[in-house]
C-alpha cells in the first residue's frame, strides 16, 4: 500500500476527473442556479403583469387612487384610502396586542417553564400557525364575535360615552368590526412573533445570563438586563414579519371585518381591508372596477414587500454580532 503510494507521482490525483463527472457537476450547478433565478423572474413578472392589469384604474383615478376616500364602483369612484387605512389599523392593533403576549410566551418557554414543558410549549405554538386562516375567520364570526358582543356593548355604553374615549370606543356596536378583525389577526400572528423572538432569546449567551444572576439579579432583572438588550434587533424583525403577515391576511379578515369602506376611529365599527375587499368583490367585478381591485393588490404587495424587507434587513443585522450601546 505504502509502496504503491510512493510509486505514484505526487499530485497525480489532483488532475480533474472524467468528462462525465464534470458534466454532472456543471448541469447540477445549472439546475440550482435556474431555480434561484426563477424566484426572481416570477417576482418581477407578478409586479409587471399586475401593474399592467391595474393600469386602467391608475389611469382613471391618478394619485386619487391612494388618497381618495370614496370607493363606489357604481359611481366609478375608486379611492382606496379606506382599505389602506383598514389594513394598517387592523394590523397595527393586532401587533400591539400580539407583541406582549408573544414575548410572554417566548420568555415562559425559554426562561420560566420547567425543562420538560419546553418542547410541548414550542409544539403548541407552532400548531396555532398550522390552523387554516378560513377556520380562524369562521371561528371569529361564529364563536368569538358573538361571545364578545355583550362585553363590547358594555364597554361602548360606559367608556364609549366618556369624552375623547368615545372617539375610539363609542357605539354603535356591530358583530363584525375592526376590533374583531384585529383580535383574530392577533391570534394568527402570535405564533410567528413567538417563534422568532424565542429563537432570538435562545441566542443570548448563557454566560451573560449567568453574569446578571451572579450580580444578584432576579429572573426578571436578568431578562431585562441580559436577554432584551441582546435581542432588540431580533424582536424588531419579529414585529415587522408579524406585521407583514397581518397585512396580507385575507380570508379571515374578510369574514370578520364587516366590509364597510369607511375611515373611522371607532374600533367597534365595521371597516374593510385591501385583501378583504379583493376577496369579497373580485368575482363580480369587471372593467375599471376589476382593474382597481388588482391595483389594490399591487399597492398591498408593495406595502408588504417594504415591511418584509425591513424585517429581513433588521433580522440580518441582528444575526451579526453587533452590540448596541
Amino acid at each position: 500500500m505504502t509502496a504503491k503510494l510512493a510509486e505514484r507521482p505526487a499530485g497525480a490525483d489532483l488532475v480533474r476527473s472524467g468528462i462525465r463527472a464534470q458534466a454532472a457537476n456543471s448541469s447540477f450547478a445549472f439546475v440550482v442556479r435556474a431555480a434561484a433565478v426563477s424566484v426572481f423572474v416570477i417576482l418581477v413578472l407578478i409586479v409587471v403583469t399586475m401593474t399592467r392589469e391595474a393600469w386602467p384604474a391608475f389611469w382613471h383615478s391618478g394619485l386619487g387612487f391612494v388618497t381618495g376616500t370614496d370607493w363606489s364602483p357604481s359611481a366609478d369612484l375608486y379611492g382606496a384610502l379606506p382599505f389602506v387605512y383598514g389594513t394598517m389599523v387592523s394590523s397595527l392593533m393586532a401587533l400591539v396586542l400580539a407583541l406582549p403576549v408573544s414575548i410572554g410566551i417566548a420568555l415562559f418557554i425559554n426562561e420560566y417553564a420547567p425543562r420538560r414543558l419546553r418542547a410541548p410549549g414550542v409544539y403548541l405554538v407552532d400548531l396555532l400557525a398550522a390552523i387554516p386562516s378560513v377556520v380562524y375567520g369562521l371561528w371569529g364570526v361564529l364563536v368569538l364575535g358573538p361571545f364578545l358582543l355583550p362585553y363590547v356593548q358594555k364597554v361602548a355604553d360606559t367608556i364609549g360615552t366618556w369624552p375623547v374615549f368615545s372617539a375610539v370606543f363609542g357605539g354603535p356596536v356591530g358583530l363584525k368590526s375592526m376590533f374583531l378583525a384585529a383580535l383574530i389577526l392577533t391570534i394568527m400572528i402570535v405564533p410567528i412573533i413567538t417563534s422568532i423572538t424565542r429563537e432570538v432569546f435562545d441566542t443570548v449567551p448563557a454566560d451573560q445570563k449567568a453574569a446578571a444572576v451572579a450580580l444578584g439579579a432576579t429572573r426578571w432583572e436578568m431578562v431585562r438586563g441580559a436577554v432584551f438588550p441582546h435581542s432588540r434587533n431580533g424582536m424588531v424583525a419579529a414585529v415587522l414579519l408579524g406585521l407583514g403577515r397581518a397585512m396580507g391576511e385575507t380570508i379571515a379578515v374578510a369574514l370578520v371585518i364587516g366590509s364597510t369602506a369607511q375611515i373611522t376611529t371607532r374600533i367597534f365599527a365595521p371597516a374593510d381591508s385591501m385583501a378583504a375587499v379583493i376577496a369579497n368583490t373580485f368575482g363580480e367585478s369587471s372593467g375599471v372596477n376589476r382593474a382597481a381591485l388588482i391595483g389594490l393588490g399591487v399597492v398591498l404587495f408593495a406595502m408588504t414587500i417594504v415591511v418584509n424587507m425591513a424585517g429581513q434587513f433588521v433580522a440580518r443585522r441582528s444575526g451579526r454580532k453587533g452590540a448596541g450601546t
Partner: peptide, 21 residues
C-alpha cells in the same frame, strides 16, 4: 439566593460583559 449573590459576587472564566456601554 438573590441576596446571597449580591454579597458574594462572581467573575467568570471568559470575560462576559453585557452588550451595553
Amino acid at each position: 439566593p438573590v441576596q446571597v449573590r449580591r454579597r458574594i459576587g462572581m467573575v467568570f472564566q471568559r470575560p462576559n460583559p453585557f452588550p451595553k456601554s
